[in-house]
Nucleic acid binder design. Structure first.
Lengths: 320, 320
DNA sequence: TGTATTTATATAAGTGCTTATATAATAAAT
DNA sequence: ATTTATTATATAAGCACTTATATAAATACA
């Protein structure tokens, strides 16, 4: 048990399970020592029926947080023991209305002081702990009702992944990644055109030496995305060749790359940054819009046959 | 679930179980969504072996709070999946030393960010609750280590039973109880002597009208004990005919009756109160000693053949 | 008014533990 | 050195749930 304690929050579920077992198991021993033929797992149902009856299986299921087969099973045990009885529902013959039997009511008298003792003991325990444990448990329940552990953990993992994405400058060793990442999506959605071949085959000669730049996104020591800034005029640049590999989707890598390209354009004193894209690439267009690009008319012929939309942003305005 | 919440402390075990389930079940969903072939219940063992290995089944059992068969079962699953491997122990061939396999170590890399995410999420959850839940859980564990629920509840139930014992004055309707309760123990340990027959047959004539008194202990509307104060001299009384039925043992009824008799003797301005008992009745003698009786010489012949000890107390001293 | 859908319960099979007990190796005792 | 006790693990059976599915009655719908 020492190891579990050391683990802290990661093993909270395990620890909670062990604590629960201590409560439930001791419950059985208490009934035994009081010579009462009763089991802890019958408690909720038996007590419910003592307070409110008759109730059918479905109603009991709703109140107790067990599944319906579990309720049916416990009900059958209590029936066999003669502690509850069936009251037939006149209007709906499917319903199995349950209530305490005379024998059950008799047992109830013996059970009450035990439950009272349990309640007193738990209260004393909480008192000695010095915190309102019941209240804390309800707060935990409410918090989990609002957002369950699955969503909480998923968010944390995703955030961590996003934080782990690193944007790196162009270096010769990543030249192939620039080509491959772009070929991947071009071949999937469109086709590789002569202009693509030229740029992707020689980024140093065709982009960087002409005043542009190429950047990469690195995740777990692997290049998973890329984008290029291409000089197209005096103070005009193009955001192009942005590609993120499928298996790294969902880490906001496209956004990070685009933001970095915008920043680079700013550093190069660009006035306008434009891009060509296709109406077919919905998510990409949404991203561009969010970043401040607006759709514009084509000034000349499109560079690629796939281009259907031209977008542009004013750099001097968006960057300080 | 609403009903369980209303119940408060009585249903704390149930509520804890439901909370535990939420943690464990969401755990499974998280591994699934991250495409990791791993189950929550493997966690503690797998993690333990990642930190400390090789370990044998017994060592793992000691650390995890599971039973040995459970550890064996989980180990077999992990072995079948190739996530752990057996390292033979040279000195003791019974021992099955376990350690992560290369495949396990590989998986560990994928698992770590998930666990980190879980830990972060739990910490955030506790933060939102505004209490150091981990600390409260350890305090609960420590408190239960010191005294488990079984003992806590047993004590509460016993105290409640003691509180429910009521001492009542003599009334004619309880005359038979006086006789029966005394016959019960006399016949069990000794035999009914002529003096017993006289007193038990006519308490009103033989005890009360002669300046003495008879009292009863009532539990759940039933007479379960009795005792008599018998006048034996000017300011001298005898505590006698104390009897508690077997099924009501352990509720400190003897003590309550004796205390009441001492108080009655005080009211009657007794100077000394004595009693005759037998060395065979150990628990009774301990009680008398605790109440302030001290062993004395017989002043005359013993009243009963069973009497082997005479005890006495000075009333004026012990009562104000 | 039949037919599809929904609701209420039952049943089957599986899971993840438990307790009880078996088996085999080692250590202790005579 | 042999018997006896202890320790380490395995196996069997059971328990208290679960999920998945079947069955039958009631309701909705067209």
């Amino acid at each position: 048990m020492e190891f579990i304690k050391q683990l802290g929050e990661v093993a909270f579920g395990t620890r909670l399970r062990l604590l629960t077992d201590r409560f439930i198991q001791d419950g059985a021993k208490i009934y035994q020592s009081q010579n009462i033929d009763f089991e802890p797992r019958w408690f909720t149902m038996f007590y419910l029926l003592s307070q409110k009856s008759p109730l059918n299986i479905t109603e009991i299921t709703a109140e107790l947080g067990y599944t319906q087969p579990a309720v049916t099973q416990i009900a059958n045990i209590l029936l066999k023991r003669g502690l509850i009885k069936i009251v037939k529902d006149k209007t709906d013959t499917r319903k199995k209305l349950l209530a305490l039997s005379p024998k059950g009511l008799e047992l109830y008298k013996d059970l009450e002081p035990v439950w009272q003792g349990f309640e007193d003991a738990v209260k004393e325990l909480f008192n000695s702990v010095g915190h309102d444990v019941m209240y804390i448990v309800s707060k935990l329940e409410t918090a989990l009702d609002e957002k369950d552990m699955y969503h909480r953990v998923s968010e944390k993992i995703k955030q961590k992944q996003i934080d782990n994405v690193e944007i790196v400058k162009y270096s010769a060793e990543h030249k192939d990644s620039f080509r491959n990442l772009n070929y991947e999506w071009l071949e999937k959605y469109f086709k590789v055109e002569p202009e693509d071949k030229k740029l992707l085959g020689d980024p140093e000669g065709e982009i960087i030496s002409k005043g542009g730049d190429v950047i990469f996104a690195k995740y777990n020591e692997e290049i998973v995305g890329t984008a290029a800034l291409i000089k197209s005029g005096e103070a005009e640049y193009e955001l192009a060749k942005m590609a993120v590999t499928d298996k790294a989707k969902g880490k906001q890598i496209g956004k990070r790359l685009a933001e970095e390209i915008i920043a680079l354009a700013g550093k190069k004193n660009a006035k306008t940054l434009y891009l060509e894209t296709s109406i077919k690439l919905g998510p990409a267009m949404n991203l561009y819009k969010k970043l401040g690009f607006v759709q514009t008319e084509y000034k000349g012929p499109a560079k690629y046959t796939r281009s259907t939309i031209r977008m542009e942003m004013n750099i001097s305005k968006s960057k300080i």
